[in-house]
Amino acid sequence: MNFQAHTIAVIDDDPRVLESLVNLLASYGYSAQSYISAEQFLQAGGPRKCSCIIADVEMPQMSGLGLLEHLKGSEWDVPMILITGKPSVRSEAFYRERGAIGFFRKPVDGDTLVELICSVCRPPKPDVN
C-alpha cells in the first residue's frame, strides 16, 4: 500500500504529453501511471492507487476540472495538479479555490512541478542524484 500511495497518476489525451511527464517523473524517482482519459482513470480504480494526480484541463468528455469536482469531497480526495495547453482565461486562484493544489500552463517547467509534488508526497526512492 505504501508503494501504491506514492504513485503519481498522469491524465492527458495527448500520448506525447503522457509519455514525457512519466519520463520526467521517473527521472525524479517517482513511479507514475498514465491514463488517456479521466474515464479510463476512474474505471481502472486510479484514485485508490495514487497519492497525487496531474490532469490536463482540456480533454474530450470529462475535463480535468470535472474530475477535480468529482473527487472533491469523496473518500478519494487525492491532491490534484491541473495543466492546460490553451491560453486560459482562468487563473491559478480559480483552480485553487476549487481544491487543486496547483495549476500550470504548458509547457510546464519540470522542476517547479516536481517541487510541488514533493511537497505532498516524497519519492519512494531517494533522489537519484
Partner: peptide
Amino acid sequence: AHELNQPLMSVLANAQAAKRW
C-alpha cells in the same frame, strides 16, 4: 497555441528528464 503547446510541453519535459538522467 494549443497545437504548439502540446509538442513544446513534451519537448521541455523530455529535455528536463534527459538532463536528470
